[in-house]
Design a protein around this nucleic acid. Structure first.
Lengths: 220, 220
DNA sequence: AATATTTTTTAGTTGAGTCTAAAAAATAAA
DNA sequence: TTTATTTTTTAGACTCAACTAAAAAATATT
């Protein structure tokens, strides 16, 4: 069965909202990410349920069926591979690629995606450190930690971000934070939960809790 | 003013039908290429005329306005650059890229196209020998000749094709004809207007008039 | 437990782009 | 130059994916 542009977007967004837990997703949550109204979402959820891609009971929220998840993973795979292409081959910055990849992810051609994957030398992660699902529909688990959970004294490496909005990424640029940055947590400030961190051995800088929550690291 | 997917397709097709002459294009001709019915075309032409992209009077046919031509050239430019990408970077054959490029041509990002152009080292032609419009909206004139117009004895080089359907290109593959093939016309057969041609100095083969019409050459 | 608030769904519209069937205009043939 | 044929347009309907406004259900508050 073929998927429309709109359907693919809904499935992708339901997938995103489902990551990391197994509660059903609310209509409103979907509406916010699709930039549509709740009434429109209700219509679409009924349609997706009819096609067997989601489990949906009115007033009970929605979750992906196995088939729906497979489609969603295919879209996420395409999105992330195109992002690698845009950064690695076209020279874009990591804060510039999201919108373009939102378009490219809907290009339909299995052979193109396989060739693109080979051309990019089978990347494991996208420019934001997010794992790229395999062509069999498996999302690799990377097991990163949140910088906001690090204790004073810990050394770690910035491996990814939990949010890829341009404003957030541009803030990281200003702070000289990027994938691979070596972080040394000096202290966690009780007052506002901000963290004093030295970045690549420079004098320590403050990182707000809000920012730290969205930075993914692994211990050095 | 922004352009929808459908509008872009219509403008591109009207452009294609207008190349090489200046008569107005009929509703039916457009319908055939857009794979829609004449009634749908009439609706769209009225809409395109309202937006100022075509000149259209009912029963009189249609032609692009300068603004419409600029949009069409932008689409053609994107289409052809993506085709170069698909063949040169992704390893597709020239008969496999049309459908994928039909999708990619609608990706909206000026900066992407400029970077793609640079990445491909500013190609002048696509994998079928068709010229790539400049970013200022100028279609280069290559002045190729049709193989069907060559007289016996002429030597020439295959520079392009006037049709890029997969079946046609696959036939050329079978005949070992590709861009750059050296052609030596032995004789033009009066009976069916087929041409006896030696390809890259191999023993002469027959090329039907129908095929020869769609092969573009320059004199060697 | 009753009431208020929030969330979600229903019902009815809208716009884009397509369709079919029938009418009108243009073109070709007798 | 009539008549027949083809092309094009009009009229009305359909699907998809969105909307608003109002009703219904679920949740939170008093």
């Amino acid at each position: 069965m073929s998927t429309s542009f709109a359907e693919e977007n809904y499935l992708k967004i339901i997938y995103r909202l489902s990551e990391g837990h197994d509660e059903d997703i609310s209509t409103n949550a979907v509406a916010e990410l699709t930039q549509t109204k709740a009434a429109s979402v209700t219509d679409m959820l009924r349609k997706l349920a009819e096609k067997g891609w989601v489990h949906y009971q009115k007033y009970q929220g929605v979750r992906l069926s196995p088939e729906g998840e497979k489609i969603a993973l295919g879209i996420v795979r395409k999105h992330r591979l195109w992002e690698v292409f845009l950064v690695e081959k076209m020279g874009f910055n990591w804060d510039e690629v999201h919108e373009i990849a939102e378009q490219l992810e809907h290009i339909e051609s299995d052979s193109l995606i396989e060739k693109l994957d080979a051309f990019l030398e089978y990347p494991k992660t996208d420019p934001h450190g997010d794992p790229i699902p395999t062509k069999n529909g498996v999302m690799p688990e990377l097991g990163y930690l949140h910088l906001s959970d690090m204790k004073a004294g810990k050394r770690c490496v910035l491996m990814g971000v939990a949010k890829d909005s341009a404003v957030f990424l541009q803030l990281l640029n200003k702070m000289h934070l990027s994938l691979g940055s070596a972080l040394h947590v000096q202290e966690v400030n009780a007052f506002d939960r901000s963290i004093s961190v030295s970045i690549d051995n420079a004098p320590a800088a403050f990182i707000s809790h809000e920012v730290a929550k969205n930075i993914l690291v692994k211990l050095a």
